[in-house]
Design a protein around this nucleic acid. Structure first.
Lengths: 234, 234, 234, 234
DNA sequence: GATGAATGAGGATTCATTCAT
DNA sequence: TATGAATGAATCCTCATTCAT
């Protein structure tokens, strides 16, 4: 784990050499994570080999293990960085939403951003489909998934403050599942076709959430969407 | 082997191929497929090892290879049997639909059946998530997925006979993707919660398809669903 | 080993049933040996698998082992049959030679016959190159080689009755080695080129033996070949 | 790997490829090749197993595969080294011959050297008898054989500059075949007997080539050998 | 830190051979 | 007899991981 310096490095020269070391270390780590991203998205997480990652990074296997105790750790750190970058780049997507704004617009914006981000970072998909079995995920491996899911849950929750938590969770899980399914299809296509799929993903999620959220959103009359049944899409 | 006919094989079922398979063999095959199903759904397809399957089946590795040339072959045969069984059990789900019947009912019936089938056969899920990378799938490995997808496409197509093929395909892909995503969540839960998810899956797919199909279905006025916006679900 | 009937079959019905059984057995054996010949010459002895032989013969592995205790036994029996057939077909080649006849003619005849026989029976070559190591040959595996070598030795010996046995043996070994080397090249070519190689093989062996035999052959003047130095060949 | 230069590698031999190989690695490679040589000559190439080679070298299978991707690669590298060593040791044998020198002497010298070399390196034989089937040889596996054969061809060609290429090739193939056959016998014997076989090999090849080369060699009268029919050998 | 070497268990697959039917 | 099933050791090869330098 590329955490902070191991033991006694604060006292002697808290700036000079450690800096340089850390700088080199950071570069290595970035190299390795980039390589991991490439390999994970090329072969899938399960089939990716640490040797292949080291090779892709242009370093020796030993070096890889100097920074990451195992394959899992790479995935975890990679997830962490992705989340971080998402937050940096699309901070607003993580910010509280204006629940009075039209759902369609809000959703479209969020989904657009995320899809675009994930298309630029195809690892994302690989990381979320890590160990293949539904339900079994190594302890922390699904940090990525959990983080996003909880964010989705917050969003939903802010729309449905009075709904039972189980229902909120379920709705969030569903929404996130739809997103992942859509992402897979988006990634599997290119150009105009990809765009068409992007549109469909937005449609799907909106149509799923609209009847749930449109009705119960605080300060809404519960009839908005029914009378104006979503702008003709795509 | 053009030998003499063994015993009594002409009269009862003239179905058998030239391959003379003993009853024991058939049993073994079933055993092996069961074992494969178990292992696939436990560890995922990629991580499943033929040795583990043999062990699970209580036979030696050699025996497995007497019947299946490799892991892929197990997956393919398993897919084949599942498709067959699906057809046997839910024949109607494969039959032409009555496009004038309310979409909601039709969909609910189909989705219910399939979910129920897949819950009884969790391999299904593992088989459809074979090789981890989106887009890469060994030629015949995805027989299962292809079969189902094409069935979905037919269904959609019968509702939208005049829609451009690309759109039909896209809609089918989306619908199938939603189904898979839903299935994953359904499998991840149990009891009442599972039921709730089943309901959500039906909602999602209906809401996605209704605006597309409800309007354009042949012989429909294109307003039915809009004016009566789906029975309050769940 | 496809020997005669096992134990008590002479007394009860010494003609009827045993005959039929033996007849069928003989057919099986021939089938198996043919298959072995094919496989041996296709893949080489070492790489040949008994399963492949059984398959080629259109029988089950079990059946093969009913007649031959192991791969070796197939090779041995095959060798035996080949020797037998050679004797049948080219009896004269095995008969005592006329040592007063011109060496060239005698040799050409013998070599021609054998090459022709071996081209029709490519197993020959495979059998003689069985286990790959010079010197190591499973006990009886090289029956073929030994038989032929001893025949060659007899021939040489009849030309050089007074030469020391070691020299005779050595000359025989050499001659046989030359033959095998030539055979390999002959088999590796076809048509006119093969013919050219056949000619070369005859040349080689003649030129090797002529100085040795031509001089010392009993009843010769020891000058014959020197004065008429072999017809200009090919 | 474009890292910093390790220690002192600029000054002595600037020969090394970018692949930074540690001394230990080189030693291992030598070890492995030695082991391969031993195993190949003990069991033959086909029957040799990589595990056996690793065991013989005292390392784990994985280590073998760190340096050689498969059995073939071992054979190829071994061949390469043998050829190299041959060139080093018997450089003259590869140098252009003096076609006016007596054939007998030239041949004897060459054959003597090669036989002696091959007796010290018995792998040679195993490598040349790779896959058992005449004609089938993996692309590069027969580097050894091809190299030698082409050298033989050059030699023959320098004696017969005006002969048709096909004939030169054929003569070379034959000569090489004779050599291999002789080598097998030489290896199969020891001490005085081996020496006797060495002599016979020289005789064989000389007698085969003399009538062909003696006549046509450039600057020869075409009668030399006939009138002085080879010194009484052995 | 970095490297390449080393490991050894494990995976897919084959094969000679034996067994139950 | 004949068959197909069964075996299990052996093959080649890979990989996560550790070690010496």
């Amino acid at each position: 784990m590329p955490e902070q310096s191991p033991e006694q490095e604060q006292s002697p020269e808290p700036e000079q050499k450690p800096r340089r070391r850390q700088a080199r270390g950071e570069r290595r780590i970035a190299q390795l994570l980039d390589a991991a991203a490439t390999v994970f998205s090329t072969t899938g997480y399960t089939a990716a080999s640490t040797n292949a990652i080291a090779r892709e990074a242009g370093v020796s296997p030993g070096t890889l293990y100097q920074f990451f105790p195992n394959k899992e750790a790479l995935a975890i750190e990679l997830s962490g960085r992705l989340i971080h970058e998402m937050r940096e780049t699309y901070g607003e997507a993580f910010a509280p939403v204006d629940v009075t704004a039209p759902l369609r617009e809000t959703l479209d914006a969020v989904v657009d951003r995320f899809l675009s981000f994930n298309c630029q970072h195809p690892v994302f998909f690989a990381l979320m489909h890590g160990p293949d079995v539904p339900g079994r995920m190594a302890e922390e491996h699904d940090a990525l998934e959990r983080t996003l899911r909880s964010r989705v849950e917050e969003l939903i929750s802010s729309y449905l403050p009075s709904a039972p938590p189980a229902e909120v969770t379920r709705t969030a899980q569903m929404s996130f599942g739809l997103y992942k399914a859509g992402l897979e299809l988006v990634l599997a296509h290119e150009g105009a076709e990809r765009e068409a799929y992007v549109q469909e993903v937005k449609n799907v999620i909106f149509r799923y959430l609209d009847p749930v959220i449109g009705d119960r959103a605080p300060g809404r009359a519960g009839l908005a969407t029914a009378s104006a049944p979503a702008p003709r899409e795509a």
